[in-house]
C-alpha cells in the first residue's frame, strides 16, 4: 500500500495490523488465546480489559517485541519479524531516557533514522512546540511534570513518523483533568499523520471517546470488537447508542 519511494512524504498511509489465531504471552506463559484481530489502516482501535488480562502483551506482540506463541502477527499482509521504526510504542511512564533532555529524547528516533543533526533539531523542536513543550525543551525528564513527560513521549513517538502508534495506557498515571487534556491533544496531533493507533486502557470512557472501534479483552481471550458511534466527540457522551455500548462494555468487563 505504501511503496518505499514515498517513505519521506508526510501523508503516508497507516499500517494494517493483524493477528490470526494468535496465542500471546511470554514463552511458557500464554496469557491470551485464539486472538483474531484486524486493525484497518488509519483507524484508532482501543483495547479495554481488566489489569492482567494481557493488554500489554497484545501491544508488545504488535510492536514485534514478543512473537506470538502460536498463530500469526502481521503488518500489511506480511508476518512481523521484530520491532521496527514503523511501529512506535508509547509507555505508561518513565520511558524517556532520563539523561537526555526532552529535546534530545525527541531527537532520538530521528538519530536512529540517520537524519542530520540540524534537521533533527528543527523537527524535534517543532514536535515539542506542537505538544506545548517549547519552553521545556532543554529540561531533563525528572524536572517536568508527569503530564509533560507523557507529552514528550508522544512527541518522541510521532517524530519518527511511524505508520502505527501503539499506546500502553499512556495516560493511566495522570489525574482526570490532565488526562482529558491529553486525550484532546492526542486527537489533535494524530490528525494528518494518518497513523494507525492501537490504544490500550482500562478506562472505558477513554476507550469510547478515542476509538473508532473498541476491542474487549477478558477471560483469556478477545471477547468482542464493537464500532463506536460518533468517536472523538465530547458531546456524544449522552448519545443513546454510546450509552448502550458503554453499558454493554461495562457488563462484559464485570462478568
Amino acid at each position: 500500500m505504501t511503496s518505499s519511494s514515498d517513505v519521506r512524504s508526510p501523508a503516508r498511509g497507516g499500517a494494517a495490523l493483524a493477528l490470526h489465531g494468535a496465542v500471546l504471552g511470554r514463552p511458557g506463559a500464554p496469557v491470551v488465546h485464539g486472538v483474531d484481530l484486524e486493525v484497518a489502516p488509519g483507524e484508532i482501535l482501543t483495547v479495554v480489559g481488566p489489569s492482567g488480562c494481557g493488554k500489554s502483551t497484545l501491544l508488545r506482540t504488535l510492536a514485534g517485541l514478543l512473537s506470538p506463541l502460536a498463530g500469526q502477527a502481521g503488518q500489511d499482509g506480511r508476518p512481523l519479524t521484530g520491532p521496527a521504526a514503523d511501529r512506535a510504542l508509547v509507555f505508561q511512564e518513565d520511558a524517556l531516557l532520563p539523561w537526555r533532555t526532552l529535546r534530545a529524547n525527541v531527537e532520538l528516533p530521528l538519530a536512529v533514522k540517520g537524519v542530520p543533526r540540524a534537521e533533527r533539531r528543527r523537527q524535534a523542536g517543532a514536535w515539542l512546540a506542537r505538544v506545548g513543550l517549547a519552553e521545556q525543551a532543554r529540561q531533563l525528564p525528572h524536572r517536568v511534570s508527569g503530564g509533560q513527560r507523557q507529552r514528550a513521549q508522544l512527541a518522541r513517538a510521532l517524530a519518527g513518523a511511524p505508520r502505527a502508534v501503539l499506546m500502553d495506557e499512556p495516560f493511566g498515571a495522570l489525574d482526570a483533568q490532565t488526562r482529558a487534556g491529553m486525550q484532546d491533544l492526542l486527537v489533535e496531533v494524530l490528525h494528518g499523520t494518518g497513523a494507525t493507533v492501537v490504544f490500550v486502557t482500562h478506562d472505558v470512557d477513554e476507550a469510547l471517546f478515542l476509538g473508532d472501534r473498541v476491542a474487549l479483552l477478558g477471560n483469556d481471550r478477545l471477547t468482542a470488537v464493537r464500532d463506536v458511534p460518533r468517536p472523538r466527540d465530547r458531546s456524544a457522551h449522552d448519545d443513546p447508542a454510546r450509552v448502550a455500548l458503554r453499558r454493554e462494555v461495562l457488563t462484559s468487563l464485570g462478568s
Binding site: A63, L65, P83, A84, A85, L89, F91, A95, V112
Partner: peptide, 29 residues
C-alpha cells in the same frame, strides 16, 4: 537497567550498537 528504555529504542528501529551507545552505557554510568 529499566527494560522500557531498551524497548523504546528497539521500537524506534535501533539496533544492538544503538542500544549499547544510547541506553546501556549512559544508563549504567
Amino acid at each position: 537497567l529499566t527494560p522500557v528504555w531498551e524497548e523504546a529504542v528497539l521500537t524506534m528501529g535501533g539496533g544492538r550498537w544503538r542500544i549499547l551507545g544510547s541506553v546501556v552505557l549512559p544508563g549504567a554510568l
